[in-house]
């Protein structure tokens, strides 16, 4: 096991940030912690990177205990915090040299690991980190987290605030790092990124809702979901919520995701009901379950 977490709890005064969290990440796995702001993701990262002590429970990273062997962990992991934490007034190259030196290595020694990412920011190597665009800051931070060839890489919301093109490139980079044998724990509030992980833990209010592969998580969803649309989405949502057999009603982009309480649900009946509410251009069709549907069903 690359990461092993047993019954970890953490409170800040009255706020229970993490409640009895347990999970394991296998060596070479790309594991996602999926949950909204305030779920406890950052607290968990800080405990695993030895920057914060848990109130209860134990955890090991790369075989080392997070309390007793904290110094060994610090040498074996790379950590990219959610907030940009490099030196704004050092240049790109100076930041990278600084982190390499701190870990007793050089840029040349592990250059193969970062090359693909670094070449994209190399044209700006003499620019101060504070003057980089968001996407370039993110790439530099990843290079700095990798320069000592860590066994385990911790990425706390690396794609928050990043546009779709850069997000896609970032995930492609993660896949390639994984192929080089690095174990990756990544957190994100974006449910669509969950599908890109080997396994995920859905987390909310300090509790893990479910852990499994993304495929298995959507497979275990208990109901058939229907896409419903009409000319007026607001009226449609209200009408669906008022329907006596409705189980869940959630706006979902151009559609509303609807599930029914009955196992022998007949869409024609629902259509007739919605028509009686003066809704027009009705579409009711089966749709696939997404991670987000599962998350909402579990968090309900």
């Amino acid at each position: 096991m690359s990461i092993s977490v047993s019954n970890i709890s953490k409170s800040y005064d009255a706020v229970k940030a993490l409640q009895d969290i347990s999970f394991e990440v296998k060596s070479g796995e790309l594991f996602g912690l999926i949950g909204p702001d305030g779920a406890g993701k950052t607290s968990l990262f800080r405990i695993l990177t030895t920057l914060l002590l848990a109130n209860e429970g134990t955890a090991t990273v790369a075989g080392f205990d997070v309390v007793k062997d904290y110094k060994k962990i610090r040498n074996s992991v790379g950590y990219m915090p959610g907030k940009f934490s490099l030196y704004q007034d050092l240049t790109v190259e100076e930041n990278l040299t600084f982190f390499a030196t701190t870990f007793g290595t050089t840029i040349q020694e592990n250059y193969d690991l970062i090359q693909e990412i670094y070449v994209q920011i190399e044209p700006f190597k003499n620019r101060r980190a504070g003057k980089l665009s968001g996407g370039m800051k993110q790439k530099l931070a990843l290079c700095c987290a990798l320069i000592h060839k860590p066994k385990v890489l911790f990425l706390d919301e690396p794609t928050t605030g990043v546009d779709p093109v850069s997000r896609k490139e970032f995930w492609e980079m993660l896949k390639r790092l994984q192929q080089k044998g690095i174990t990756i724990l990544v957190s994100t509030p974006y449910m669509d990124e969950a599908a890109l992980c080997d396994r995920i833990a859905l987390i909310q209010d300090g509790k893990i809702l479910q852990i499994d592969t993304p495929q298995a998580i959507v497979k275990h969803y208990p109901k058939q979901i229907y896409n419903v649309s009409a000319t007026n989405t607001y009226e449609l949502t209200n009408a669906l919520k008022a329907y006596e057999y409705s189980h869940s009603v959630y706006p979902f982009g151009e559609f509303v995701h609807y599930t029914d309480q009955r196992s022998d649900f007949n869409p024609t009946e629902l259509k007739a009901y919605l028509e009686s509410k003066n809704l027009s251009d009705l579409v009711i069709e089966k749709t696939k379950v997404t991670i987000e549907d599962t998350f909402m069903e579990l968090a309900k």
Partner: peptide, 17 residues
């Protein structure tokens, strides 16, 4: 951005309204 999925729906319902 960053809001949990259920609150997010409630937010969009407010926008629709």
């Amino acid at each position: 951005g960053g809001v949990d999925p259920i609150t997010r729906r409630q937010f969009w319902e407010m926008i629709y309204k």
